[in-house]
């Protein structure tokens, strides 16, 4: 067991290296564009050269990567091209915002997915199953930014019940924080529940076909007790293992939702980096999002193995 945990942790390091290298290459895929965008299209060739030299952009990409990664490991993400402010503190300030949004949205998704998935799986191959499965596809097919727009239109502008966006830290004003987080979480959570309902349904169907369910049934265990005691407990483990993938998608979608609701999280920082062509900012923000996703996957992997050693995950199921 300990060896397995160690192996998982060890294999996280190359994953992190490759992932960060991919991001670094993706951001720097067009050479020279950083200087051009920082200085504008009217910059002289000399000025561009000077800028590139100043920021070490004239060196080979591999050298730049190693230097960036070395500093990033110490929490130093360089300074913004735009305003020469260190990027690290800005990123750290935004992490809790995004984590709260993603976490609460995931809760919304789970609250929808577990009951619906259980009902569909328990009534497998019936009309109820068909309705729930279609509903899951419907949720999953909704563009989250469109849903967000509709939610703002209805709940904020028409009804005036909730603010249209913005952010207040939970510590300052818990009610104000939740008020502003509700619509973004619904927009993200409902769409994510689409896949989660299906995952839960599959997990329940799997458990339902086990011998011990038959035994329980023949002993006269009622439906409600069967679901709550036998099915749910066993289905939740595979559900959470697989749903970690969806959490990754959800964190990615934060980029759009934070923009729509003007939430100052990591996602909106990615966009700030893109709009300003501020590569240190973009890299730091994108890397943070990626690391969050990777760590969540790692934790779920480890937790699943500790809770249920039968679950040896080879890949990310879908």
């Amino acid at each position: 067991m300990l060896a397995l945990v160690f192996w998982r942790l060890a294999s996280f390091i190359p994953t992190l290296i490759v992932a960060s290298a991919i991001l670094f290459v993706a951001v720097n895929v067009v050479p020279g564009s950083a200087a051009l965008s920082a200085l504008g299209i009217h910059a002289t060739p000399q000025a561009l050269k000077r800028f590139e030299h100043q920021h070490g952009l004239d060196r080979p990409l591999a050298v730049q990567y190693v230097e960036w990664a070395g500093k990033a490991l110490q929490g130093d993400f360089g300074t913004s091209f735009q305003n020469a402010v260190p990027v690290g503190p800005e990123v750290r300030k935004r992490i809790p915002v995004t984590l709260q949004l993603a976490g609460m949205a995931f809760v919304v998704a789970i609250v929808l997915a577990i009951p619906l998935g259980v009902v569909a799986g328990f009534r497998h191959q019936t009309g109820t199953d068909g309705v729930v499965t279609t509903l899951a596809t419907l949720f999953g097919s909704t563009p989250n930014f469109w849903l967000a727009t509709l939610l703002i239109w209805f709940f904020s502008l028409k009804m005036g019940w909730l603010p249209t966006g913005g952010y207040i830290p939970f510590g300052e004003d818990p009610a104000g924080n939740l008020e502003r987080m509700l619509l973004p979480c619904i927009a993200l959570g409902v769409v994510s529940s689409g896949l989660l309902i299906r995952i839960m349904r599959t997990a329940v169907i799997e458990v339902m076909s086990s011998n011990f369910i038959e035994t329980a049934r023949s002993k006269g265990v009622g439906d409600l007790r069967l679901v709550s005691f036998h099915v749910l407990r066993n289905a939740l483990i595979p559900f959470f293992t697989v749903s970690a993938v969806e959490f990754g998608f959800l964190v990615g979608s934060v980029v759009i939702i934070e923009d729509v609701f003007r939430i100052p999280g990591i996602g909106s920082l990615v966009l700030v980096g893109i709009i300003n062509r501020d590569y240190p900012v973009l890299l730091a923000a994108a890397m943070t999002v990626t690391v969050i996703v990777l760590i969540v996957n790692l934790i779920v992997d480890l937790a699943a193995q500790v809770i249920d050693p039968r679950q040896v995950r080879t890949g990310h199921g879908s």
Partner: peptide
């Protein structure tokens, strides 16, 4: 590893 990336993030970048 590529699969682990949030798709929209990679596309945006």
């Amino acid at each position: 590893i590529v699969f682990c990336f949030p798709a929209i993030l990679l596309a945006v970048i």
